[in-house]
Amino acid sequence: MKHCCILILFLISFTSQSQNDPELIQINPLFNNEHLELNKPYFLASVNDSIKIETLKFFISNVQFFQDEKLIDSLSKKQHLIDLEKEKSLQIEMSRSNRLRYNMIKFSVGIDSITNVSGVFGGDLDPTNGMYWTWQSGYVNFKLEGKSEACSARNNFFQYHLGGYQAPYKTISNIELKVSQQNLIVINFKIDAFLNGIDLAKSHSVMSPNDTAVALSKRFQKIITIGDEK
């Protein structure tokens, strides 16, 4: 009985403490400032036409927390596959073992080159997740597929599979965001901004490491922001 009380006390103190601790990173894909829904028509101003997103999958890796440029903590799970079809995958759990102070978060969109050359892994990296190229080794860092009348490809289907881990087609993108300490860090991915200015009539299929993949991967720096939960 005595043990039981101690356990309960411990649990109470643990939960109350964790209320102040950061618990989740919420990945928040946006389209025209709304939470992006798959297969819903949106208006894309840059092509002056409607657009539907059918697939949005990407890797977030090496999440690290900094206080004034000093590394404070990093998530033990290195790679997270974000898949808009699986709502749960949009939430990344943070470690709750400490009350460290931090004011910056750093992470990468994509998979680093060492992981790319180290053979097969299960879990989020399992090749059955459809994020690994079969004809040439390498992970797909970011996959965006959908339809728009403005797209001249067969069935108006566009597909951007961005990847490549070797120079000169290195596509992993490193992101730094200033954050305030909070229980929930919301990270916006502005997908309309990613597509902004892409000529869907010409550049609708990117599926190998090349110059276009590198150029499009540079857009992540601009489309990823810290946001309020929507």
């Binding site: 050359v117 053979g119 059955t128 079969t134 004809w135 040439q136 080794s137």
Partner: peptide
């Protein structure tokens, strides 16, 4: 040299439309 690791090699013939035309899934 398209494949960088033995573990990943089998994915290529499994997926190639002219070889086994299947998916790992």
């Amino acid at each position: 040299g398209a494949i960088n690791h033995l573990d990943m090699q089998a994915l290529a013939p499994i997926s190639h439309s002219g070889e086994m035309d299947e998916s790992i899934q």
